[in-house]
Amino acid sequence: MERHISQRFDSDLEALKSQVLEMGGVVEQQIIDSVKAIESVNRTLAEHVLSVEDDVDRREVLLDENCTMILACRQPAASDLRMVLSVTKMTRDLERMGDEAQKIAQMAIALSDDGAAPGGYESIRHMGALVQKMVNSVLDAFARFDADKALDVARADTQVDREYQTAMREIVTYMMEDPRSIGREMNIIWALRSIERIGDHARNIAEHIIYLVKGYDVRHTSVHEIEKRLNKS
């Protein structure tokens, strides 16, 4: 489709897009670092993750301000309206992903202070990698306005949820074997829980992208239903 008659409107929307991608990049790095910090018991890296939070918050506020300005000054319609609405929701999910990365980093600090837990690191590594890939793909899907790629992210979240259940069972066995490890294993559980939540937020973003691209609100629907909807169009 064509560009807007108003070139400034085009550049406002382009700026919005790059700001989301930049914020996404910062949050993605936060997630990578927090998982690495817990795996490698790296307190310095965990503290670095915590220090990035203010930057993420600032970006969220700035993006919201820009969306508000576009709504007030341009009264966008159709795909432009969906773009602005999706961006406001996506930044919220990105910011919360950042919060979860921060929690993982806090668990990394606790584990570096109390000593490593006897098990669960493999699950952290595995789920961490899955979720990192989801975040990367969902940002890519947004950059390309690609609804199919967004659907892949929604599918991947189902796998993360399954992995999370398996990891919980495994960690409970560690706790039963050595009750003295319960405190440390709880830290692993909290970290896993945060990783799983990051997956949920990535899925939310994928849903916002499908709304943005196709105009379908696919929140609160199963992956199967989303597939059916997208195949029809």
Binding site: M1, E2, L13, R144, A147, G215
Partner: peptide, 14 residues
């Protein structure tokens, strides 16, 4: 992108 209904913004071809 061929599957995209939202492709209005940044196509340098246009």
């Amino acid at each position: 992108n061929s599957n995209s209904g939202y492709n209005g913004l940044f196509d340098p071809m246009l």
